[in-house]
Design a protein around this nucleic acid. Sequence first.
RNA 1: GAUUGCGUAGCUCAGUCGGUAGAGCAGCGGCCUUUUAAGCCGUAGGUCCUGGGUUCAAAUCCCAGCGCAAUCACCA
Length: 558
Amino acid sequence: MSETTPQEPAPLSESEIVASRRAKLKRFRDELGFDPYGRREDGLLAIAAARARFSEEAHVAFDAASKEAKATGAVPADARAVVKVAGRIVQHRDMGKLVFLFLRDESGDLQVSVSKAAVEANAFELAKAADYGDILVAEGPIGRTNKGEVCVWATRVSLGAKSLAAPPEKWHGLSDPELRYRRRYVDMYANPETARVFAMRARIVSRIRRFMDARGFLEVETPVLQPIAGGAAARPFTTHHNALDMPLFMRIAPELYLKRCLVGGMRKVYEINRNFRNEGIDRSHNPEFTAMEVYEAFGDYGTMMELTESLIHHLACEMVEERRTAGLRVGGAGVSGGPVLPWGELDIDYSSPFVKVTFEELFRRGAGCDMRDFAAVRAKARALGLHHEAKLDDWLVVNEVFEECAEPLIDPCRPTFVTDYPSAISPLTRPHAHDPALCGRWDIFIGGMEVGPAYTELNDPDIQLAKFTEQLKGADDEESTFRTLDEDFVESLRVGMPPAGGLGIGIDRLVMLLTDSQSIRDVILFPLLKSMAPKQEGDGEGGGEGEGGGAAKSGGHA
RNA sequence: GAUUGCGUAGCUCAGUCGGUAGAGCAGCGGCCUUUUAAGCCGUAGGUCCUGGGUUCAAAUCCCAGCGCAAUCACCA
């Protein structure tokens, strides 16, 4: 935004609408004497707070007094609160010598009336000519109109910012999803629902932090720029540090650094931060997403389960309260009287206890055979049309059959922990001592989405090294360019990491569930979109590094 | 990455059988001191996503590309 001089002509490319707005800007400044870009304002009230200052008695008393005053010519007594508000114009009705407009800020909308008789001439002209989308500051007593609308009867009006852009349709708002994402700053004011979701997101994240802090977890921040991207099976973004002339990766998970924190002596740590994965985009995947990872020394996947259930139950209770206060629909009482929140067509019941089912039991129910009976499992796989089953190891077939016919059995309306996964498909998890075929891992499913896994972490450096090495062998050439053994991490395990439980929760997905959002892009302020810029010459198969064939099979955590 | 759908004025959308572009809102010029998507009179606004092709004629049919969405794959 350069400081334009009044004489500067509008660029030819600008539409008529923009040109007329520029002309108004000039008029507001040169003829009416308003700074079109405002100045500091003290004593501003949020619009919701200003509305709360409305008093029916004061309004009625003033109404009566002014009628009487009309007869006697006296000045009517006025006990109405005087408020100063600022907001974007979202409605504007010019009645001639009286202008009604609605100002909107993040807390709500409020009507302002500007009467020719009540304000300076320039302020009246400003109110009359102001455009949808302009930011206005108004001050005056708060009362009602004849139709009952709570209203600021302006005594002073000024400009906070002249908007030069064409506004969206005033009734339908901005509804094209592409425009909403690309011009989120318009979406946020045009669709109050959007702003509300992001305010709720902020409160949810803040509650998660308070919850974790109250339980004695220490929030830490570990590297996003990593020389080796580890801790998960995913393709990373690549970058480069110029001064060090060193290739770097954007992290795919903080896991290996958080575990180093346990080695260093931190008992309970967590991190809420961004991960980056160079993979597909859909309703539940954005290339950068926010995850919370938690590690608790001397805990295991059971302590993580208790923590997770308490946390999500707590958040759901808070959301029910928040939705009630906001007048939004909440579900009835859950099976044990717990909180119920709508999510699209579903009503999700967050009652404690959450459903718990072992992988093995769920497999039996879905597949109709025992998962350790590989002949039967392979027969089932063939019956399902998984033609490539012959090429897979037994346990990978088990996993495919599980995903095909057991996962759909999970009730999307009840948060469900699926526990005790086969060790063979969870290579970085600690096998159970009593049954090494199974390991200390669960995944929690809500609304049909996987919200996060937890593990009883492996802390034997020799086993860890063996598993890493095995994994590296499985990676193809392209993958191996970024699947490098993190020797320093293994070294840290040699120093000695206490036994621990670890947890990862996809914060965006949790926020989707709690805010009744159907797409991850509705809970990420500025989701990644393809550039609209014309294609550069010769940027054919762009990207180069990090491009790989199929993504890694099996492998790390989270 | 695959399949399907969509792309028309600043925004929200119509557009019939292929016949040469429509509405509402927003804008501009008027009127109006109690409006609630205010109303009334007048007026202007188009690369029909882009590029080819078929045709006397293309927003419309065909091909390719770009963008978005949904589903699938991958993943969390």
